[in-house]
Amino acid sequence: MKEQPHRLKWHILFVITIFALAAAVYSASQTINYNWQWHRVLPYIVDTSPVDIIAQGDGSASINNSSLTITYDNGEPDRVISNADTLLVSDGDIIFEGDLLARQESVRMGVLIEGLLTTLEISVISLFFSLFIGLVAALMRISNNPFSKNLSLLYVEVIRGTPLLVQIFIVYFFLGTVFDLERFTAGIVALSVFTGAYVAEILRSGIQSISPGQMEAARSLGMTYPKAMMYVILPQAFKRTLPPMASQLINLIKDSSLVSVISITDLTKAGREVVSGSFATFEVWFTVAALYLLLTSTLSWAIQRIEKRLANNG
């Protein structure tokens, strides 16, 4: 326990450094007279602005027990508004199309949280597809068949040798036009194919790190090659590849920010939109970064849990 005071000193230094960094950021913003307004970000996280209720045609209003009834002149069925928080017309008023009738309090997800959910959705779907593509490509790569081996090699080399941004454009503008893909689908295809190539390499090296004796033992028991893979080799390979797989899947979340270039309103695109509306540039981007960190750290926590559970055996 002699080490303890020594370690405490370093912890204190760490905390001081973090504060110094925060102070540096603050004073840097002072030199350009930046006015921090964190409260401006809040509406983009939780949207509490009231919802306006607008008249859809000409008619007249009648109020009964704080319930507003609009009778339209053109004979359309009456509109009853009973749950409004503030009524902006009085009993007997003549109403014209487009008039503001009432306001309703509401709590909705802000634009940034909607973006976060889009990012999460794209990432989760791409995660499953990339694991599938990666597994198939890895199995093709280690097979003895020159056709599947070369096909897999070509796929991995082409994908790893070109930028993701270019791939997204190619999928969106070329494949998207030819196969009439929605932008959301195009984004998922590009991300899955891209990440799949890296997953394939990780899985391939994982499978090849398992001693050949495992395959021999499985085959000597009468298992077919696919069964031996499924029950003996892959479970061990998956366990070994968890750490590199975790960082690749975290990359997937971060890489998904690039789909904002094809106008998918993910977290990054939402950030760009909010910046132009709120004039709180720094605050918004710091918030966006924090939200990404929330996703990635949740994922890495989850994978660590899996790793711990698997570490108990074997």
Binding site: S211, S220, G222, Q236
Partner: peptide, 26 residues
Amino acid sequence: RENVGMVFQSFNLFPHLTVKENVMLA
């Protein structure tokens, strides 16, 4: 092969399965 058992110098047990699961797998 189902009819021909083999025992290896380096055992080659399946490390991710328990002893009983090793015996039960095939």
